[in-house]
Amino acid sequence: MTLPIILAVAEASTPEKFGLELHVVLIQVVSFLILAGVLYYYAIRPVLSTMDERVKKIDSGLRYADEVKAKLEAVQHESEATAKKAQAEASKVIEEARKTAKEYLDRQSQETAAKTSEMLVKAQQVIELERRKMLAEARTEIARLVVATTERVLARELSEDDRGRYNASAARELSNT
């Protein structure tokens, strides 16, 4: 940037005399300073800040990428663990279900067996009951017949003598009580 200014100075000084014109230099310096100031304010500073921002953005972007990567890994791990756990649990549940089902089945079959035997016992009881009822009926009937026959026979067959003897013993019995 300084080169054109020097060239300009050189070019301007060539026709007249070779030397340093102080005021021109001063003006040049002042104008240069103004230009530099203007440039700095309106061009360089925004550019610098923009660059800074960019750098920051890139940095954060990179960091984010790293984080995401880590997270991804963690999630992967986790999902693996969950899957494993789920597997284990599933097998446990299945195991338990199987066990319960087996127990239930056992219980049911036992109950059924018990019920069947109970039914058998009940049926036997009913039969036994019927038998006993019949026997009791037969017994009363036989007893009735025995008594009725005995009455008839005794009424007809007992002689007066027999009765007299029986009465005598009955009288003795009564006198003694």
Partner: peptide, 16 residues
């Protein structure tokens, strides 16, 4: 049945 009846007959006493 008959035995039972016999038992009952045996138990009978001529007591007043």
């Amino acid at each position: 049945v008959l035995e039972q009846i016999e038992q009952q007959i045996a138990k009978l006493s001529s007591k007043a």
